[in-house]
Design a protein around this nucleic acid. Structure first.
Lengths: 158, 158
DNA sequence: TATTGTTATACTCTATAACTATA
DNA sequence: TATAGTTATAGAGTATAACAATA
């Protein structure tokens, strides 16, 4: 009953059942979907959209807070912010009290872009959620939470 | 009741509740965990470990079959395979019938590496699965399946 | 001394597509 | 014409760390 080709790939290739592999696949597809949507509509990369959304929701914030709150790399943040400031999407004002800090906020153009992009992204989120039964969605969130914690385990933890 | 800093980040930053963002976070953490495990033990990247596992499970296969079965990019596959052949992990024999094709299999070294790495990776998978209740795991698989399908939707599908 | 933020390096991944050699 | 595989390119993400300015 074995199969020479891959028409029955999941039986033949245990890798394909690895939980992490499945998550990786889903992630890649979701990423591609979001990237297409964003570049069609706003010319933003996914990272920059996330930064735009974070700054937009925070009102006024700073790099180190974004890094902490969203678990983003500060180097990556710094480079993306530089581009977004140059593009006129984000305003960076030096803080009076701590001169190392720049206070970040959306410019008018940044806010416009945020407000025109958000509904499309929310629509997508809604479609994705709608593909799941309500209890599946609840369980999914819980499972992701637990997996994120379990992903902190390291084999070298002797 | 609002909060100036991010101590209550999930209430303040709706982005953090986006399903895709949560999956992205989990994926990044799982990736980092696997990469650490692999480079500590075998010097493989995650992509190359997956290729090793795919070829190992298939016994003998070819590039186009791997690309189809695992939804991997053929360019990426070709470049990784080149390195793995150079490293002596994979053997590539030209097919007698179709001379465009190389039949791929593990070398002795490749098989050793596969067999010494697999238990560690399976142990990790088991730990991750064990962090979930049985019914959570079942639902997670189902939800991932549905999301993968929903991720094919495009806004431009007029 | 520690923290904030910038910059550099290097590697990996992803997407696209031109290209060859075979079929 | 179509397919198998190679190669090139460019953009994006990731990890690490050296570094300057400031606290």
């Amino acid at each position: 009953m074995r199969d020479d080709n891959f028409s029955n790939a999941e039986d033949e290739l245990p890798l394909l059942q690895f939980l992490t592999y499945r998550i990786s696949r889903v992630h890649a597809k979701l990423n591609a979907q979001a990237s297409t949507l964003l570049s069609d509509h706003s010319g933003l990369t996914l990272s920059r959209w996330r930064i735009l959304a974070l700054v937009g929701a925070a009102g006024q914030t700073r790099l180190s807070d974004l890094a902490r709150a969203a678990a983003l790399d500060k180097g990556l943040l710094s480079r993306n912010l530089k581009v977004m400031v140059a593009d006129g999407l984000i305003d960076a004002q030096q803080d009076d009290i701590d001169q190392r800090v720049h206070l970040l906020s959306l410019t008018q153009a940044g806010r416009s872009l945020f407000e025109s992009t958000l509904p499309r992204m929310q629509e997508r989120q809604a479609k994705l959620r709608a593909s799941l039964a309500p209890d599946e969605l609840t369980t999914l969130y819980a499972a992701l939470e637990k997996l994120e914690a379990a992903a902190d385990w390291r084999g070298d933890s002797a």
